[in-house]
Design a protein around this nucleic acid. Structure first.
Lengths: 243, 243
DNA sequence: CGAGTGATTGACTGGTGTCAAACCCTGTGG
DNA sequence: CCACAGGGTTTGACACCAGTCAATCACTCG
């Protein structure tokens, strides 16, 4: 099996059971690959795509474009994620998708996916579950950005990120390459650039984590989860990774 | 057709096309009805429900329970909504569901729904679409609570609410009974109670809306959408209502 | 070595949270 | 009929956190 299909199968297996027939169905998907530099738009707000994007390497983000040009980042996606699965059933994109750092994506025609869902409902249910976990992550983001003070908010954000990275096997749970810039972090967490810096140095001094030069390093996981009040149950993983 | 089935069919038709066979399938669902007073929990965080909740009348809310007892409200659901459709495919509830004011709900066994999806994929796709719109609403909430100042945030919140109410036919677009209390509004929008009051009186003075005694009144829709930067396209309705 | 990009720090301000008091309305009971 | 209690709302005073803006620093690349 090539690594594109493998990425998708592994991701779905994080939360769903797949039979060998299900896997065979997934293996039959055709796709085309594309490489991206930093901050390239993959899909724009208002588009009506007929391809589904699968992250193969690197990071991809979703964002709202606001009046005035400001962006609000909504989520970040790692290897195996389908950042625009919603495009399967909703005509117009209500947000955009872009690369964060160098990234590689594969595009799968919607038609093939829909046909697969009709033939093997279980494949559909797995991807449905994927989109539901997506929604759970959004809910957590609402809470994070609305109810937690800056430093806890920052801590929680990185807890989720490294936890998901560890679950998909692209991180050992200690370090992660994550080439987001600080102004983008500000547009993710709903805080000013100065506050991003202040909370990052808070977390450095508290010996929770260190984030600099696009490299995240966990110093003390216990402490970090405590600061960020991080409880991973909302990620609905069948086998939660140990960090 | 009784009004419970009708509520679900109408809701799904807001965004999806259903054949008469699809509708017949939905009509076959059995259910049980329950009446609720204000602020009763319907499902708790951590539950593993085997019934899906359908709002028949009144309002239902979802919320996160935080350490310390504070709540973060995530969304509000009106007639026809399935506030815990995610329970269909995710084992443990990562949030709770409760009533807001008097409400009536119907519960449909998961098994019946899953069987329906297998027999008629199109019914599954319609409910999948429903959950995707749910996710779109969450995304908008992230942006609203993270990127908009208090008054705009409040305006946007009520714009969405009355717009959705109008779409499902339970409001004329001018007034709506909505028995949320101000402290709950604060826990929804991520602001202090004092700020809730300040922005409500801002909107009153700006002649955008009036909200008092659990009754929402739109004074000037144009003005309100402008203040809240409200663009309803994220709700993905086939026939957007005119207000 | 200089330019450029991004990170960091500092001074300042204003908005938002906290807290407490006052208010309003409704329902109840003397 | 009025007094009172209670829940919910509204207002005010005040402190402080977080936003804005500008200057400085660090690093990379030409």
């Amino acid at each position: 099996m090539d690594h594109v299909h493998q990425a998708l199968v592994s991701k779905l297996k994080e939360h769903s059971r797949l039979t060998s027939d299900d896997v065979a169905m997934i293996k039959s998907f055709s796709y085309s690959v594309r490489h991206l530099a930093h901050d390239e738009d993959i899909i724009r707000q208002g588009d009506d795509p007929n391809l589904a994007v699968l992250v193969v390497a690197g990071t991809v983000a979703r964002y709202h474009l606001l009046t005035g040009g400001k962006r609000q980042f909504l989520s970040f996606h790692l290897k195996g994620d389908l950042p625009d699965a919603q495009g399967l059933f909703l005509e117009k994109m209500d947000h955009a998708v872009c690369s964060v750092g160098n990234a590689t994506i594969a595009s799968i025609p919607h038609k093939q996916l829909i046909k697969a869902f009709e033939q093997r409902p279980n494949v559909g249910f797995a991807i449905w579950r994927e989109t539901l976990i997506d929604a759970a992550i959004f809910r957590e983001a609402i809470t994070n950005n609305s109810a937690r003070p800056p430093t806890a908010r920052m801590a929680h954000f990185f807890c989720e990120l490294i936890y998901r990275a560890k679950a998909t096997g692209i991180s050992d749970g200690q370090t992660l390459d994550f080439s987001v810039l600080l102004p983008q972090l500000a547009d993710t967490l709903g805080m000013a650039l100065a506050t991003v810096n202040r909370s990052l140095s808070d977390l450095r001094e508290a010996e929770g984590l260190d984030f600099r030069l696009a490299k995240l390093t966990i110093i003390n996981w216990e402490r970090l989860t405590k600061i960020g009040q991080f409880d991973p149950s909302y990620l609905h993983l069948r086998k939660p990774p140990m960090i």
